[in-house]
């Protein structure tokens, strides 16, 4: 599903954020990405989401070398991903429904299909009935779950989550992680960046550990 082949990422004035990172993520696999603050977790996810480009090496997503993807292809690659952000990245002037519907609207789905899928996604994250609310009328955990619903509404092949539990209490965090497990069980590949060591160790999944941009533990 995802291959990193000696990938380095250098920011113009901040030095190497990633150095010579190689790993492989099998289809349907779930893995955690950990490391100290500034280790390069977000950077790694951004490379996959094509928000940044590799400085060296190759990132290969579903057989596609991301270095060789042209600008106009990027949207179509992103439609195969479900992105979850620590700061949710919700549109505050749109309802929960409209936020979750956005990936479908963007991909040109029929509105019947959109309604059906949005409600299914909201149901999965336990927010059915909140669809007419605006994001600011929800708690942080609820907003995070709106973000998750938006990420999965498009039935992505790969879910990338950057600190999805960063703002949640332990109980909610566990719930959210359980959600990801459910997606993984239906065949979705999941990569979660998190520094919540306790939570990660309680769950029995592969852990990729970054330290100053280098992959120090893979297993």
């Amino acid at each position: 599903m995802l291959t990193f082949d000696h990938v380095s990422k250098r920011y113009p004035d901040a030095g190497d954020a990633l150095q010579d990172v190689s790993f492989y993520l099998a289809p349907g696999e779930m893995a955690f990405l950990t490391g100290h603050s500034g280790a390069g977790k977000s950077t790694l996810l951004k490379l996959i989401a094509m928000m940044e480009k590799c400085s060296r090496g190759h990132a290969i997503l579903a057989g596609k070398n991301l270095n060789r993807v042209s600008e106009w292809q990027i949207p179509y690659i992103r439609r195969q991903l479900g992105l979850i952000f620590q700061d949710y990245k919700l549109l505050l002037d749109r309802t929960v429904f409209d936020n979750v519907a956005l990936p479908l609207v963007v991909s040109g789905y029929h509105h019947h299909e959109i309604g059906r899928r949005v409600r299914a996604a909201l149901d999965k994250v336990g927010l059915l009935g909140q669809e007419k609310k605006y994001p600011l009328a929800l708690s942080g955990g609820e907003q995070q779950r709106v973000g998750i619903a938006r990420a999965v509404v498009n039935k992505p092949r790969l879910i990338l989550a950057d600190e999805p539990t960063g703002n949640l209490d332990p109980e909610l965090s566990e719930e959210v992680m359980h959600l990801f497990e459910q997606f993984q069980q239906v065949g979705v590949t999941v990569l979660i960046a998190s520094h919540d060591i306790d939570l990660i160790s309680r769950m029995n999944y592969r852990v990729l550990k970054l330290d100053h941009g280098q992959l120090v533990q893979e297993g």
């Binding site: 106009w72 992103r78 919700l90 956005l102």
Partner: peptide, 12 residues
């Protein structure tokens, strides 16, 4: 930005 992140094309 958000539309682009969820796969919106330039045209969209």
């Amino acid at each position: 930005l958000i539309a682009k992140l969820v796969g919106a094309t330039h045209a969209f």
